[in-house]
Amino acid sequence: MALLVVALLFVALLGACARSPAPVRFHADGSPRTLAEWGVLQSDGTRLRLAGGVLPYDLNTPLFSDYAHKLRTVWMPAGTAAQYRADDSFAFPVGTIISKTFYYPRAGGAAAANAVLKADATPDERIGDGLDLTRVRMIETRLLVRREGGWAALAYVWNDAQTEAVLSRAGASLPLQLVAQDGGGTDFTYQVPDQNQCAGCHASNNTTRAIAPIGAKARHLHRDYAYANGSAPQLQRWQQVGYLTGAPAAAATPRNADWRDGARASLDARARAYLDINCGHCHNARGPADTSGLLLDSSVVSTRQLGICKPPVAAGQGTGDHTFDIVPGQPAQSILVYRMRSLDPGAMMPELGRDLIHEEGVALVSEWIGAQNGRCDSET
């Protein structure tokens, strides 16, 4: 009898070990074939769980990606921390792994197999700090990995069973149908970026061309997050778990507006936050679009640099035959709105990351331009 009890205890211990989440595994070089080899996220096809020490986070205003929802996480090796910077991305230690999982709510009902729902994120998508995979369709997970030589970008595409994600160096095109609340559907192609496109977006310094995180800046992260054990200020939580040093008091930390929060933020603050995250990583004084003269990051105060009554540097189809980047009071005559509404690869902005028009974003920027006063010289 005693031997039977010991045997049963041994089997139970083995089962417990089998169920324990594997630790995060940082790869100092190479490109692991599967996401599971990093150990950051674990899926059994029903639940997506975060490994120990993996911290979820969100942004005040996120980048638009064809209405996809995103689960963002960060992990750092024990005993290391990011150094706070007021304006730029934090200085992350070697070994940092930042993940961003793109997913959609399932359309359900009689919708097509490739149908996903256009809807705001809701608490029922979550299980703890992970995801309820019975309610969502995962598309891809992108990693930014801080190695000795700098950041590396890797994209992993999830299989239909949502049990494994495989490295996709060349990117991928996934046909989907976006279903609105009224039942209407729009076919589109979700584009998983290739490695060059990942590097192109994250190389926000046109001189060094070094890859860096876009969202991991104080002004984007200074907000509360609904963790599994309750809501708390994100930057405070980062400090509590040892992931951030050198941060000032909350009152001295910059904060971008939530672009949707018209009750607590001004129209100007919301539009500037939207342009900052969607356009500012290229349209800044050091970015790939620096020669355009149009600067849209949050630090810009010059109305001319913001595009108000500024002619484009180079004429062409990107102007839509309009004369100025922004015409006060006239969004329909502004190049900025034209390019946001375009799906032409030679004119659309942003150039990558979307196959759909962000109607709500266009409406916000149009309202912002419409509220501006003034008149441009030679305005027609």
Rank of each mutant, 00 (worst) to 15 (best):
A212I: 10
A218S: 14
N206D: 15
G242N: 09
G242R: 02
S231T: 15
A203S: 15
F188V: 08
T245C: 03
N229V: 09
P213R: 00
R219M: 08
A218G: 03
Q191D: 07
R219I: 09
V192L: 04
G200F: 14
A250L: 11
Q197K: 13
A251W: 03
Q236N: 06
A212P: 01
P193L: 05
H220E: 12
G230Y: 00
A247H: 01
Q240P: 03
T208S: 15
S231Y: 11
T189P: 05
S231G: 08
T208P: 03
C198L: 14
A199R: 15
G242Q: 07
A199Y: 00
T207C: 05
A216R: 13
R237F: 01
R219L: 07
Q197T: 14
G200S: 12
Q234E: 14
A203K: 01
Q197D: 12
Q236I: 06
Y190V: 07
A216E: 15
I211A: 04
F188M: 09
S204F: 07
P213V: 01
Q239A: 11
T189V: 14
R219W: 11
C201S: 11
Q191G: 06
Q240W: 06
H220A: 09
T186P: 05
T189D: 12
S204L: 10
A228E: 15
C201M: 03
A232D: 13
A210I: 08
A228G: 11
T186I: 11
I214R: 06
I211N: 02
G246T: 05
S231V: 11
T208W: 00
R223S: 01
A247P: 01
Q236L: 09
V192R: 00
T208G: 04
N229D: 15
N205M: 06
N196M: 08
A247I: 11
L221G: 03
G242W: 01
D187A: 13
D194T: 11
S204K: 13
R209F: 07
D187V: 08
A247M: 12
R209P: 05
F188Y: 15
Y243P: 00
V241P: 06
H222S: 10
C198M: 04
Q236G: 04
A250N: 08
F188Q: 11
L235C: 07
A212V: 14
L221Y: 00
W238Q: 01
A210D: 15
S231I: 13
A249K: 13
A218V: 09
A250M: 10
G215Y: 07
R209C: 04
G242E: 06
A226Q: 15
Q240C: 05
S204W: 13
F188A: 06
L244Q: 04
A226V: 14
A252R: 14
C198D: 12
I211K: 02
R223P: 01
A252I: 03
A212G: 10
C201Q: 03
Q234P: 05
Y225H: 14
G242Y: 02
F188W: 07
Q239G: 05
D224C: 06
